[in-house]
């Protein structure tokens, strides 16, 4: 069975994890009703690399994994802090 490299616990059986879905940005409070509904209900569902929220259920540890939905390979996993500081750096540049 697949291994998930947890940033805290190391490689563990995928059965110990739950995926909560794509990493998305909550839209502004002033966004339209349509934008809000799409945020709540729609997924991009792309064939390619996605970043997702995952939790290691025995230790209740949340982290982010970048996964290729075509090959199912886990490309990289990040602590939440690292992921968002990297994204912030990417956004600035």
């Amino acid at each position: 069975m697949k291994l998930m490299p947890c940033p805290l616990n190391g490689p563990r059986n995928i059965s110990e994890f739950v995926c909560r879905g794509e990493v998305t940005t909550v839209p502004d409070r002033e966004c339209s009703d349509r934008e809000w509904s799409e945020y709540v209900f729609m997924e991009n569902n792309i064939a390619g690399e996605v970043c997702e929220w995952w939790i290691h259920t025995p230790t209740a540890y949340w982290f982010i994994a970048r996964r290729d939905t075509r090959s199912e390979k886990i490309l990289q996993t990040y602590t939440v802090a690292d992921f968002f500081s990297q994204s912030a750096r990417k956004a600035k540049s």
Partner: peptide, 9 residues
């Protein structure tokens, strides 16, 4: 779990 998810952000 949801509490931890939200506070992670």
């Amino acid at each position: 779990r949801e509490m931890l998810y939200w506070n992670a952000q």
